[in-house]
Write a protein that binds this DNA or RNA. Structure first.
Lengths: 353, 353
DNA sequence: TTGTAAGCGTTATCAG
DNA sequence: CTGATAACGCTTACAA
């Protein structure tokens, strides 16, 4: 392995390890002579400082950890990329971990990170402890220990932590307005799992947008998914069999939308003519669809940058305020006029067994 | 912060720090009495061992690093997820880093990981050093230092490292056979960047598959993209304007396919009738497309598991053999008969300015 | 089984 | 500006 230590460098350069250390970590009190010699020798020997030892002494690691739900969800992979790039610019290394929407895995990752003494944590919290309906013990412990932490995307009930979240109100109002002006009255919602605050927020904002447009909110038009493609497909079948035959639908994330659109394509539905569709999350695949799907999106790059900035503020002892990021509605051809006669969309469609 | 050390635990439990250490790391030589007391105190005080100090002493970190090109590419996010899960089962923590197809960023990440003394590296190598056409200095240094490392997905010319790669020959032969039996003779290829070994392999296998089916390989039917959506769109426009009017196309990854399909949809092309399309990488969006797109895919979960296993073998001092994973062709409705008259596909299409 | 003490590779302190 | 030395938190001979 790489057994070359700072002592080896110092010896080869004919100086003490203290001087070598000063040169290698850019301390001002060094002579040009020793600087040159040490640097040359270090390069030649291929010296790689041992970050373990360094941070054991200096108690900082220049490393942060990012916990997300699932890298495979484009929403999170884009967010993760933004955070990593932003942290990188600030001289911070980022460790990314997956929780798979599971609070046990979340806690395991957090424990590992704590034991590695990362300087801070950016967390997409994974919901409440199922049994007790309260934040997990690990989460409470981190808060108690005072480790710098910020939440991004989601929040946790009962935990006061600086957080960067997305508000869907603005875009949803525009989206529902667009639908109602096209004559839609029965608008379904395929939502996320209730333990995720984003799922609750999107659902509440949906209902509020209905109200703002003079429509009642109807629990029978709500399908509870889990943010994954499979549940989107289930939601699509649920909608096809729905007695009220909704003429439009809003889907709470991209994987579910892709699952749903696949089912509707198989069923021979023509989006826009038979069903108007709006989905959360702007992913390229939505532009590939025929017709392209209208989206509600957030600026994840902005949110990611803000998360890093907020974490740095916390690390500096400040208390950054919560920030909510607005959403944007992009109208596309997936919106069409509501079908003239209720149930028209079911014409000529294969029956479901 | 978390200032509770093993000394605090030892003191509170009335034993020496050595005994506390033995208890906490499961050493057999401990009395039931001290075991109980130490464990109780540790829990009560919320003791979190300092991994830095531990591995400074024991020179192992139970941590591996994974370097990929871009988390936002589903191919890599799926691979990363598989590797992480598999490592997790083996008691290893995984640090994921992005190189963005850039060998400078790759080297920076590798340096950071080396300085953190990870036990091993799983790397999707980021191509040759542009100027010198040889592996980067960092890469050579790692090899020289003997740090356990395996390559996954790609290889690097001139570097002998255990590697897990994907072979496309099998699936491509089946794919081209399917196309030729439908009458296709002018089959285009939208490929990846030449510095990626996967791009070269896919291109070579494509040519070989043509030959196996009695078709000549024509450089004029090859478009060099960069594995990202934008170049897929460029490739799509290139194909639309192509004098030979290819009747089918194979695309070397999913992001490019999505970019290309978007352009073709905008141009009013009907996939299967006007153009037959096959893409590498199985992503859900391909099933959503109308018609669903035929794919050439690899079992990334299998490849990820094998990568972790191979790395463990290297860490154990063995020398695992290279392994190549076969590919699978999934025929779907995106394949149709070649247009009867050459140029038929251009009928009624908007001209490009 | 337990305690003492040395040491992992750095950086910080304090004289010189 | 430089060098000796202690200290970071933990593990592990070596003795007891």
């Amino acid at each position: 392995m790489n057994a070359v230590t700072i002592k080896d460098v110092a010896q080869a350069a004919g100086v003490s390890s203290a001087t070598a250390s000063r040169v290698l970590s850019g301390h001002p009190s060094t002579s040009a002579a020793s600087r040159e010699k040490v640097e040359a020798v270090a390069r030649e020997l291929g010296f790689v400082p041992n970050a373990q030892a360094r941070s054991l002494r200096s108690t900082k690691t220049d490393t942060i950890a990012l916990l997300i739900s699932d890298v495979r969800n484009p929403y999170f992979s884009v967010l993760a990329h933004a955070i990593e790039q932003s942290a990188h610019e600030a001289g911070l290394m980022t460790f990314i971990g997956n929780a798979n929407e599971d609070s046990a895995q979340q806690d395991q990752f957090l424990a590992a990170m704590l034991s590695r003494r990362v300087d801070g944590l950016i967390v997409v919290p994974q919901g409440l402890d199922q049994a007790a309906q309260r934040p997990s013990e690990m989460m409470s412990r981190i808060v108690a220990s005072g480790t710098p932490m910020v939440f991004v995307d989601r929040t946790l009930r009962g935990i006061e932590i600086p957080s960067l979240t997305a508000s869907s109100a603005h875009a949803l109002e525009a989206a529902i307005a667009a639908l109602t002006s096209l004559g839609h009255r029965r608008i379904a919602f395929i939502g996320g799992p209730d333990h995720a605050s984003t799922a609750r927020e999107r659902h509440l904002a949906f209902d509020a947008a209905l109200a703002a447009n003079g429509l009642p909110s109807d629990p029978a038009l709500h399908f509870a998914g889990d943010f994954k493609a499979g549940s989107g497909a289930q939601g699509a079948r649920w909608l096809l069999a729905h007695p009220a035959a909704p003429t439009a639908v809003v889907i709470a994330d991209a994987p579910m939308a892709i699952g749903a659109l696949t089912v509707w394509r198989e069923a021979g539905l023509k989006i826009s003519r038979d069903l108007s569709v709006i989905t959360f999350d702007e992913v390229d695949a939505m532009l590939m669809h025929d017709p392209p799907i209208a989206t509600i999106s957030h600026d994840l790059t902005l949110m990611g940058r803000a998360a890093v900035a907020a974490l740095q503020a916390v690390m500096a002892g400040q208390n950054p305020e919560r920030r909510e990021f607005s959403s944007h509605f992009t109208q596309r051809e997936s919106l069409g006029p509501a079908a003239a006669s209720p149930g028209a969309m079911m014409e000529g469609m294969p029956t479901h067994e």
